[in-house]
Nucleic acid binder design. Structure first.
Length: 693
DNA sequence: GCAAGGTC
C-alpha cells in the first residue's frame, strides 16, 4: 500500500523548498509529469508535494453561448476554459487530479492570505474531488527550513474558510464590476461609432485613472505666480560660489531690486558658520515596489519591464523571488555564502571581501513584511548564459543594494555660511561626504550632490564678484511618471505588488494614458466622465473603501458574504440600467474622442475608374457600415464604391491580386481565420474570392 | 474580450 499525503503549494518554488525542508534526509526526489514538477519526500510518511502556478480556477459566465449584458450570474471554472492564454493549465489540473486519487491525506500549503486560500480551496474541491473539508492547512511565514518543519508539525485541522470566502467574494465582485462596466462602455461606443474599440474599467483601473485626471486638472487650473531670487556670486581663493539671499522667495520685483542696490559695491563678511554632521543609514533591501521605483529612477525601466526582467533573473537563479513585499533579510539566507560566491566576480571581489572582513554581518532592514518571502537578494549564482544590458543592470543593482545594507552609515557634513553684505544676509551652503559608508558599496547607483567649500573662517571678508536676481514663476504640480504613479497606488493600497505595473500598462493599452510624463488622453477623460455622471457611487472612493472593509470582515469571520454579493449586484443593476438608458448619449460622447484610424492605414490605392482619386476604407454615416470608396466622391467627381465584409478587421495589403492586378485587402476574423480579399467584382477569381492563406 | 489576482 503506497498511500501518501498530498501537499499542495501555490508555486513550484515553494513546493521545492517544502520538499527540501520536510524530507528527513534533505534529499527529496524531483519528478515531472507532462512538464508539471512535483517532489516526493519522506518524513513520518510519504509526502507528495505538488505546486499550482497561481490560480488554476476563476470566475466565468454561467452558460455557454452568447454573452448577455448586463450579466449577474457566474460560476467557478478551470482557467483553461475561461481564458485563451491558459490552455497549458489543463494538463496541470490533470496531473494534480491524478496524484490526488492515491492520496489518503491532503495538506493545503498555499500562501496564507486570501488569494492563496482560494488557490488551495478550488484545487482541493475540484481537482482533488471534494477534499476541501478533510484537508489540513499548513501555515508558514517564510520558506525557511525551521519555519516549514514547525508548520508541518503543527498543521491546522482545517482550511480557514472565512479567508476562502473573502477570496471568492473578491474575485466575484471584481469580475461583475469589471465585465459589466467595461461592456457598457464598449457597447455604447460601438453602437454609436460602428467601430470596435476595447474600453474597460475596474476596481483598480478606475481610481488609478482618476489620480491622473485629478493631477491633470490641478495642472490646468494652476496659476503661476512670479517670484524672485537674489544671489551673490562670491569668490573664494579663485573659485566662485553662489550664495542665496536669506529671504526666499521674494514676492516683489521692487523688493529684489532694493536688496540688490543696498548690496551694490559692498564686500561680504562671514558672520557665522553653521556646521552639522548627518549620519545616513543605508536604504533597506529591495521589495518589488522599491526595486521598480529605483530601476525607473536610474535606468528609466518601466515597472512592468523591471518585473519581467526580475522574473528572468529569478528563473536563472541569479536573484531570489522578486514578487515580495518584504524588506527583511533573515540570517538563514546565508549572508556569508552569498558574499563569498560574489567574490568570484572581479567587479565585486574587493567590496565583498571588505564586508566579509567585518566581525558581524547585520543587514539594515525596512519595516515591510511578506508572508512567504524575504526581500530580494542575489543568490550568488553566476549567469550560465550572457545577460543583456537590462538584465545586467538590474542584477548589478540588486547585488550592490545587497552589499550596501551591511555597510556603515554615510557621514555627511553640511555647512551654512552666513554672509553679511551690508545689512543683508546671504547663505552659502556646502555639503561634503566625510565617510562614504554604504555609498561605497552602492556606487555607481548613487547621485552625489556634493558642494565642497574651501576653508572659510568666521569674520573673513569675501569678495562679491557680482549680484543678480533671477525671475522665476511658481511651477504647477508635476505630472506622474511610472514611478510616482506606482507609489501613489501603493499609498492608497489599490492593486497589489504583482498587478500594479500591469494595470498601469492596461491603461496605456486602452489609450487612456500617454507618455512617460503621464498625461490623461481625451478618451481617458471622457471614460471617467461617463462613469462619474452615470454611476458615481460605484466608482467612488467611499464605495471602494466600503467594499474592502466588507471583504476584510468576511475574512475575519463575519458571515457577510451573501449580503455583500447581493448588495454589489443590486448596485450594479442600478448602474447598468442607468448606463443603458443613456447609451446613445454615452456612445456619442465616447465616439467623439475615439482615435480614428490614420488615413495612411486606410488608403488602398489608385481609383481604377477616375484614375485621379484614391480608394480608401470608409464608413457610412447613415448605416455605420464600412465600404471602399473613392476620395473624389466628396468632390462630386466619382461614385466608385465596393462592399466590404462587416465582420472582423480589414486593412490594405501592400500586394496586388495575381489575376487582375487590383490591390488586396487583409481580412482578419475574431479567431485565427484570415484571408486576402480581392474586391474587384470582375476578377477572374470572383467566384472564390475568399482565399485562405 | 471585457477585471484583478495569482503564477510562469
Amino acid at each position: 500500500m503506497s498511500s501518501y499525503c498530498l501537499v499542495i503549494t501555490e508555486k513550484p518554488d515553494a513546493a521545492r523548498r517544502i520538499a527540501l525542508a520536510l524530507d528527513t534526509k534533505g534529499k527529496p526526489e524531483t519528478h515531472h509529469e507532462r512538464h508539471v514538477p512535483y517532489w516526493i519526500a519522506w518524513r513520518n510518511k510519504k509526502l507528495v508535494i505538488v505546486p499550482a502556478i497561481g490560480h488554476l480556477y476563476t470566475v466565468a459566465k454561467e452558460h455557454a453561448g452568447k454573452d448577455p449584458y448586463p450579466i449577474f450570474t457566474f460560476r467557478w471554472v478551470p482557467r483553461h476554459i475561461a481564458e485563451r492564454k491558459a490552455k497549458h493549465l489543463a494538463r496541470w489540473i490533470e496531473v494534480i487530479a491524478k496524484l490526488a486519487t492515491e492520496a489518503d491525506m491532503f495538506v493545503d500549503a498555499c500562501d496564507y492570505d486570501i488569494e492563496g486560500s482560494i488557490v488551495g480551496y478550488m484545487i482541493l474541491k475540484y481537482a482533488c474531488r471534494n477534499k476541501e473539508n478533510i484537508a489540513m492547512r499548513m501555515k508558514y511565514s517564510t520558506l525557511t527550513n525551521e519555519e516549514l518543519e514547525k508548520a508541518y508539525s503543527s498543521l491546522l485541522p482545517q482550511l480557514d474558510f472565512a479567508m476562502v470566502e473573502a477570496g471568492q467574494t473578491r474575485h466575484e465582485i471584481d469580475w461583475l464590476y469589471g465585465i459589466n462596466l467595461s461592456r457598457a462602455l464598449t457597447i455604447a461606443a460601438k453602437k454609436a461609432s460602428g467601430r470596435y474599440a476595447t474600453l474597460s474599467t475596474g476596481r483598480v483601473q478606475g481610481p488609478t485613472l482618476k489620480f491622473v485626471a485629478l493631477r491633470e486638472k490641478a495642472i490646468k487650473s494652476f496659476v503661476p505666480t512670479p517670484y524672485w531670487l537674489v544671489k551673490a556670486q562670491i569668490e573664494i581663493t579663485g573659485s566662485f560660489f553662489d550664495a542665496e539671499y536669506e529671504k526666499n522667495p521674494i514676492k516683489s520685483r521692487e523688493e529684489a531690486d532694493t536688496v540688490l542696490s543696498d548690496c551694490k559695491g559692498r564686500d561680504g563678511k562671514v558672520e557665522e558658520i553653521e556646521s552639522k554632521r548627518l549620519h545616513q543609514k543605508p536604504p533597506p533591501p529591495f521589495d518589488l515596489g522599491s526595486l521598480q521605483s529605483e530601476a525607473y529612477k536610474l535606468f528609466k525601466y518601466t515597472p512592468k519591464q523591471t518585473a519581467e526582467i526580475a522574473q528572468h533573473l529569478y528563473l536563472d537563479a541569479l536573484i531570489s523571488y522578486p514578487r515580495t513585499s518584504s524588506q527583511k533579510l533573515p540570517k538563514t539566507i546565508g549572508y556569508k555564502q552569498i558574499l563569498k560566491k560574489l567574490c568570484a566576480l572581479p567587479k565585486y571581489n574587493k567590496k565583498a571581501l571588505e564586508l566579509l572582513a567585518k566581525s558581524e554581518l547585520k543587514p539594515l532592514e525596512g519595516v515591510k513584511q511578506d508572508p512567504a518571502h524575504p526581500a530580494i537578494y542575489p543568490t550568488g549564482h553566476l549567469p550560465e548564459k550572457p545577460l543583456n544590458t537590462m538584465e545586467k543592470n538590474l542584477w548589478d543593482l540588486v547585488i550592490r543594494r545587497f552589499m550596501a545594507v551591511f555597510a556603515e552609515p554615510t557621514t555627511i557634513e553640511t555647512s551654512n555660511v552666513h554672509i553679511a553684505i551690508g545689512k543683508h544676509i546671504f547663505h552659502l551652503k556646502g555639503s561634503q561626504v566625510i565617510k562614504k559608508g554604504w555609498l561605497h558599496f552602492y556606487e555607481p547607483h548613487t547621485r552625489s550632490t556634493e558642494t565642497v567649500l574651501p576653508p572659510i573662517k568666521e569674520g573673513e571678508i569675501l569678495k562679491v564678484e557680482k549680484l543678480f536676481k533671477e525671475d522665476r514663476f511658481t511651477n504647477p504640480p508635476s505630472r506622474y511618471n511610472p514611478r510616482t504613479l506606482l507609489k501613489k497606488m501603493e499609498e492608497h493600497e489599490i492593486g497589489t505588488k504583482a498587478t500594479r505595473a500591469e494595470i498601469m500598462h492596461t491603461l496605456y493599452k486602452r489609450k487612456y494614458l500617454q507618455g512617460m510624463e503621464i498625461a490623461i488622453t481625451n478618451l481617458g477623460f471622457e471614460v471617467l466622465d461617463v462613469l462619474e455622471k452615470h454611476c458615481p457611487k460605484i466608482i467612488s472612493v467611499e464605495s471602494t473603501r466600503e467594499l474592502e472593509e466588507r471583504i476584510g470582515n468576511i475574512q475575519n469571520g463575519k458571515k457577510e458574504r451573501e449580503k455583500t454579493l447581493e448588495e454589489a449586484i443590486s448596485m450594479l443593476q442600478k448602474a447598468t440600467s442607468q448606463l443603458k438608458a443613456n447609451e446613445k448619449t454615452i456612445g456619442i460622447q465616447l465616439s467623439k474622442v475615439l482615435e480614428k484610424p490614420k488615413l495612411a492605414e486606410r488608403i488602398i490605392g489608385k481609383c481604377p475608374s477616375c484614375k485621379t482619386g484614391k480608394l480608401v476604407i470608409l464608413r457610412s454615416r447613415k448605416t455605420g457600415k464600412r465600404f471602399i470608396g473613392c476620395t473624389n466622391y466628396f468632390k462630386g467627381l466619382c461614385k466608385t464604391s465596393y462592399p466590404l465584409p462587416q465582420q472582423g478587421s480589414v486593412k490594405p495589403l501592400a500586394t496586388n491580386c495575381k489575376l487582375c492586378g487590383w490591390p488586396l485587402i487583409h481580412v482578419q476574423m475574431k479567431g485565427r481565420y484570415q484571408w486576402k480579399l480581392c474586391f474587384n467584382p470582375n476578377c477572374p477569381r470572383k467566384k472564390e474570392k475568399a482565399k485562405a492563406f
